[in-house]
Simulated assay, not measured.
Amino acid sequence: MDFLNYNLFLDTLDITLVGVLLYYVYKLLKGTVAINIFIGITIVFLMYKITQALKMEMLSGILEVLVGGGAIALLIIFHPELRKFLLMLGSANISSKRSFIKQLKFLKTEINTEIDSESIVSACIKLSTTKTGALLVIERNNNLDFVKQNGDYMNAEINVPIIESIFYKNSPLHDGATIIKDNFITATRVVLPLSEKVLPNRFGLRHRAAIGITERTDCICILVSEETGKISLIKDGEFELFESNEDLLDKVKGYLV
């Protein structure tokens, strides 16, 4: 009886852990193109298990071939997500006071500290009217310490005047990106990794840098073009232009909820 209870406990634990894993993978991929592929792969795997249990040898054999090549397919399809995960592990300071479990922030989708989105957007709008180039990187779940180290560390609470002063054309801090975390500006003059994508000629180094960092992490970037004054929001390597300031503010708030 104890043996049966033990096996039942293991089966229950196994199913629970698989459910938790699938739930967090879904949350990680939610809102990306990869979510549809993930759902498709999950359906194929479940069909394989069902046909195997029902001893449908021909169909299960076909599905087994598909599942067998799934590991290689996952590496190819989910390359950006795997890259983010490995980059997070490589940049995590496990020896610090925070535990390794706390470093696994990629499993979370909620941002606990409220960021002053209004001040960020207001500052970008003012910069756009004077065509002052700016690149703000808002850290979400993935740690950005690996890029902060090549910039200047700062610990200043967000407000409109300080963002304007950083990107003022004669300011020594205006070059590079400014990183925001937990409603504080934590680094300035940060050199970001550049994207290897082929971009239109009108895109400069700021655009390439914004795409590059959002391809590697889950941060969002707000960019003010020095040539046109237009404001762009960049997430997962994709650009969004906004004609309405209200739409931009709503979008930023939505990503930081």
Results as ranks from 00 to 15, higher is better:
L127I: 03
I115Q: 13
I179N: 10
L135D: 01
S91M: 04
G90E: 04
L127P: 00
I120C: 14
T188H: 06
T130V: 01
R140N: 03
T130K: 07
Q149M: 06
E164C: 07
E118R: 15
N159S: 08
A92N: 07
S195C: 00
L89Q: 10
G90H: 05
K197C: 04
A134I: 00
P200W: 04
K108C: 11
M154H: 08
L192G: 04
V147S: 01
V191M: 05
S117R: 13
N112Y: 13
F146W: 03
F106Q: 08
T186R: 13
T178L: 03
I180N: 10
T129G: 00
V137M: 04
N93R: 14
T109W: 12
S122T: 14
V147G: 01
Q103N: 09
L135R: 02
A123E: 08
S119F: 12
L192T: 03
K197H: 02
G133R: 03
A156V: 15
L199E: 08
N142R: 04
M88F: 01
L89P: 02
I138T: 08
S96Q: 13
D152Q: 10
E118L: 15
I101E: 15
I163R: 06
N150C: 03
A92D: 05
K108H: 14
A177M: 13
L89Y: 06
R140E: 03
T178I: 06
T188Y: 08
D152R: 11
P172H: 02
L144E: 06
I162C: 07
K126C: 04
V198N: 15
A134C: 03
D152L: 10
A92W: 10
D116V: 14
N183S: 09
T130F: 02
S91P: 00
S99M: 12
I101S: 14
A123N: 06
I111D: 12
I125A: 01
S122L: 12
V137C: 07
N159L: 04
L144M: 05
S128H: 00
A123L: 06
K169Y: 08
I115N: 15
I179R: 07
N170H: 05
G151Q: 05
K169C: 02
G176M: 03
K169V: 09
I163W: 07
S95G: 10
Y168H: 11
V198C: 12
S128K: 00
L136A: 06
S99G: 15
D145T: 05
Q149V: 10
S91Y: 04
K169A: 06
Y153H: 08
N183P: 10
A187E: 10
L173Y: 11
K102R: 13
N183M: 12
E164Y: 08
L136H: 09
I111C: 10
E164Q: 10
N93C: 09
I162V: 11
F100A: 11
D145Q: 09
T186K: 14
N201F: 12
L127F: 01
T130M: 01
V137G: 05
A187P: 07
T113H: 11
G133H: 01
E114N: 14
K105S: 14
S99L: 11
M88H: 08
K97L: 10
P161L: 06
V198I: 14
S165M: 13
A123Q: 09
